[in-house]
Amino acid sequence: MAIITCKQAAFAYDGITVIDGLNFEVNNGDYLCIVGENGSGKSTLMKGILGLMRPKSGEITMNEGLLSTQIGYLPQQNSAQKNFPASVTEVVLSGRLNSRGILPFYSKADRKIAHDNMEKLGILPLRKKSFRELSGGQQQRVLLGRALCATKNALLLDEPAAGLDPLVTRELYGTIKSLSADMGITIIMISHDIQAAVEYASHILHLKNKQLFFGTTEDYTQTKTGKLFLGAAEENDVIN
């Protein structure tokens, strides 16, 4: 069942089109990686999916089962957060806000969900620690925990591995994969890491201000675009 459908959608900033010709759908339980170079429109599309930006033309529709209050989002961290005094529990619990709504404080049920998600992600021992004292990988897990508190259905992740070392990156990707496999959560991830995208994702959406490719990962690796991009990434690895 399609939970997000994009039909001939285009997005623009101040009248300048950043990306157009978007045609894809995300089904329940998919693991979609959105790849492409810097400035190819990945983050713009993410804003469109989150409902923070309206398409200039075409349409992007959410299935009724997926309201914006049911999406979990892992944004890129901003510099202000790095020194923010907040405990791990406070951060994770804040993901419950969208379901708690206007009611004051958090309920016992909210706290239980936060607790369970921290346990699932292996950050329960850190729960009383201050967010700013954690390592980069731990911080991403905490933010992932918050995102999980906000959803049962779909997670949107914006370059979750940015700035992490390779080992921590693999652990994080492993965790995300298991969320997808064990809990059936739909994953939509922006990634620079094409190798990992091909390894973990079920579907690939390749952007370069238009849609270069959308389909299953298997098909992607057979296309010219995919081979080129994968090849280029490998070359880069050799150079690095």
Binding site: L50, G51, L52, L67, S68, T69, I71, G72, Y73, P75, N78, Q81, F84, A86, E90, V91, L93, S94, G95, L97, N98, R100, P104, F105, Y106, R146, A147, A150, L156
Partner: peptide, 21 residues
């Protein structure tokens, strides 16, 4: 009354906005 909303908006406005707050 709005302690948790004020926290969420102060801590991470983008996340709050994206999740429908």
């Amino acid at each position: 009354l709005f302690y948790k909303q004020l926290f969420a908006v102060t801590y991470d406005e983008n996340f709050a906005k994206a999740t429908g707050v």
